[in-house]
């Protein structure tokens, strides 16, 4: 039982971080109908920005409240700028071309960032993983029993930050003039332009917003995972994308729900798939094949398996609406 609660907590913590990244995907998809493949890598860049900022602050300042806030804000601002540049230089010129063109461009940017950061030329950090500084000093917040269930303070803090950012986003999208413009562009950007909405500016701002969220999520992820490396964005990004699709891409609460569902599923697979597989293996005599039975090594396959099932059974996602295709 305690096991179950612990997995539940870990899954929730992971899910909220995926949710923040997934929101960026979903917003960009909403306004541009583009899967921003580079989103995860923008997140990775944000983590490195946080790493550099914390390094400059030094050990005694980085874990103060002010220092940690500075780390968050600076890397979010930096990533917002990066998102703006990517949109301006790479996506905007291609907006009226076929969607495949934008998709290939996005893959190209993703590659440039993730493999560019593996070089160790100039300011680029190189491929070896680094330990992310403890901008939140980890200590056990709640301990149940004899360390059966542990809730860490960073889990609570990142949960709160994630909820706060999501609430802010919800208010921005549904309660402000700008949010209304965003929704209008998402509905039909040509008509929105006719109505006097500055489409370019709205799209650019959406990109900046999504990238800033990604940076925040990335730092939370780095606090959880403690290791920083240039390829982290690729996998976290893909998983967040999967979460966005599960929830119905373009749907803001859907992305959050999908992400939490994914976080929980992954955690349970890691926790229990070993047992299930071992049981199955004993029944089906899989031992002779020598399939590995530790759950954690299957973690990466979970997201994609989940995605394929969702796409086959309900391609529009859990909350997505079925849209009829007009010929």
């Amino acid at each position: 039982m305690n096991d179950l609660i612990q997995h539940l907590i870990n899954g929730l913590a992971a899910g909220t971080i995926y949710a923040l990244v997934a929101l960026g995907y979903t917003m960009v998809y909403g306004v541009l109908k583009l899967i921003n493949f580079a989103h995860g890598d923008v997140m990775m860049v944000g983590v490195y920005m946080g790493y550099a900022t914390a390094g400059h602050l030094g050990r005694e300042h980085q874990s103060t409240f002010l220092g940690a806030t500075l780390v968050f804000l600076l890397s979010m601002a930096g990533c917002g700028l990066l998102g703006f540049l990517i949109e301006r230089l790479a996506y905007r010129p291609l907006r009226d071309k076929s969607r495949l063109t934008s998709l290939i461009t996005a893959i190209g940017i993703s590659f440039t960032l993730s493999y560019g950061f593996q070089l160790d030329i100039g300011f680029l950090p190189g491929a070896s993983p680094r330990a992310f500084p403890e901008i939140i000093k980890p200590h056990e917040w709640i301990v149940i029993g004899d360390h059966d269930v542990i809730i860490w303070n960073w889990q609570v803090i990142s949960f709160l930050i994630a909820i706060l950012l999501m609430l802010g986003l919800q208010i921005l999208v549904f309660r402000t003039r700008f949010g209304r413009a965003m929704r209008a562009v998402s509905f039909d950007h040509r008509i929105a332009a006719l109505m006097g909405i500055p489409v370019d500016r709205v799209i650019a701002f959406t990109f900046m917003l999504g990238s800033a969220l990604a940076a925040g999520a990335g730092i939370l992820y780095a606090i959880k995972d403690t290791a920083v490396q240039p390829l982290m964005g690729l996998y976290v990004g893909l998983k967040a994308f999967v979460a966005a699709v599960i929830g119905g891409i373009g749907h803001v609460p859907g992305a959050v729900a999908g992400a939490i569902l994914l976080g929980l599923t992954e955690e349970f697979v890691v926790g229990y798939a070993g047992d299930v597989l071992r049981g199955l293996g004993a029944v089906l005599h899989l031992d002779s094949l020598g399939v590995g039975f530790t759950g954690s090594s299957w973690r990466d396959a979970v997201a994609f398996g989940f995605l394929i099932i969702v796409l086959l059974v309900r391609p529009e996602g859990i909350f997505g609406r079925v849209t009829a295709e007009k010929v």
Partner: peptide, 23 residues
């Protein structure tokens, strides 16, 4: 389009994970 791209990508990764876990 994009969805198919992701599924094929996921398939490639699943193959890799399976191979990595098979004696």
């Amino acid at each position: 389009g994009d969805y198919l791209a992701i599924v094929t990508l996921g398939f490639g990764e699943i193959i890799r994970v399976i191979v990595q876990n098979t004696e």
